[in-house]
Nucleic acid binder design. Structure first.
Lengths: 225, 225
DNA sequence: ACTTCTGTTGAACGATCGGTCAACATATGC
DNA sequence: GCATATGTTGACCGATCGTTCAACAGAAGT
């Protein structure tokens, strides 16, 4: 029966998601994966071509889904700011629901080779483009000021980094976190000016901590006893 | 001569940083590391106890240095905002100068075991505390508005994520990037209100994209040809 | 009843894994 | 000249790596 076939495949992927997240892709053996799923080696290789294909699938799925959801948002006629905020909610929800797989993605996609690496890289780049475009629309509509394009990378990190610290048992839902983050990002952390506007912080030049490894003869060495 | 001993150790760590970043910790063999350094196995194990110790050292050093630099900044009597901005510059500089090692850190620190894992985890947490404290000082001094503590995680991601996208041959120096990021974070992306202040975006509720896997019978499967 | 299809087992493969060790080379101290 | 320190070599260890495959069980089709 088709459903069984697909269900077994999903069980393998779920187990792999768990193990790869905890131990890394190269750190997890096929034997161990078989034990976790409760299948012999032959059965596992009946459902999948190789260990790398498992990693590929884990890396591919969620990015692909995000792109699809981004496309849905683009197809709706929405104010740019609303669209971007919706995107951040979708992103945070996806990370929360598939945290382990996102960890596998970030920590192990360098283990992918050939066309599989290319495919995943392209999906990741495509998603970044879409987010960058949504931010650009906010600028075009005048709700965002024009900032250096590199800030897009920062914004992505702002949200993506959640794969490392998000906890299911936390007090906030992924959507609440996304809204808090969006507010921080859009309105900034600076306190609104009350009376006299504070001088611009630029060129007030924070002090230099100094280049590393100066003054101490061998600052990196810990075995000098 | 002592210097030779230390120099060889550094050569090993540098080579390991390159290889671990490209292939992952478990994906790199000791034989390969030996070949990269140009040493036999015995020589390598003369300088280091185990492969894991190499990973430990790569993960430990940069976080430790950041903490030390943060402590230096704390010891200076500075406006909180200036201190925080200086911290972001130091952080971005460190990531830029040791990008590969930061990649090793983020992608492979789950491979550390026992006390080594504990040590690195504690250093990472300590650094997060220091940054959180610096942001808290900004709130105390009234230059930042009070935001939910979870935003600290976002801010860290904003900068840390650079380990993935920073390029040496880029147009901007790490410090310039840090300043652009700090400005974006402090002042926000929203365009300054011109005439009528726009209504608060909260509760304007962006539309729901809908739960995943609804409507399409088997949305995750790609092999249905 | 017999063939076919689907799913599974576990032994076996050559390769590579991290780590050890006796032997050796070179330099330093006496 | 001889003993000791410091580095280095590469063969070798048992274990594990990802993958293959002949064999088999059970259900479905005819």
């Amino acid at each position: 029966m088709r459903a069984d076939r697909n269900a077994t495949r999903e069980r393998i992927l779920a187990a792999a998601g768990r193990l790869f997240a905890e131990q890394g892709y190269h750190g997890t053996g096929v034997d161990q994966l078989c034990k976790e799923v409760g299948l012999g080696k032959g059965a596992l290789y009946y459902h999948l071509d190789s260990k790398e294909q498992v990693l590929f699938e884990l890396c591919r799925r969620n990015v692909a889904e995000l792109i699809q959801q981004a496309n849905v948002l683009e197809s709706h006629d929405l104010p740019a700011r609303v669209r971007l905020q919706a995107m951040t909610r979708v992103l945070m929800r996806n990370i929360a629901d598939h945290q382990q797989e996102w960890q596998v993605f970030f920590h192990n996609f360098e283990a992918l080779t050939g066309t599989r690496a290319q495919t995943v890289r392209r999906l990741r780049d495509r998603f970044e483009e879409l987010v960058g475009s949504m931010i650009g629309q906010c600028v075009t509509e005048g709700v965002f000021r024009s900032v250096h394009p590199i800030v897009v990378k920062g914004v992505l990190g702002f949200f993506n980094y959640a794969y490392l610290w998000y906890r299911q048992d936390g007090a906030l839902s992924p959507e609440e976190i996304a809204d808090i983050f969006f507010d921080a990002l859009a309105n900034g952390l600076a306190a609104p000016a009350v009376a006299a506007p504070e001088p611009s912080p630029r060129n007030v030049g924070p002090p230099n901590v100094g280049p590393r490894n100066v003054g101490s003869p061998n600052p990196r060495s810990e075995n000098e006893s």
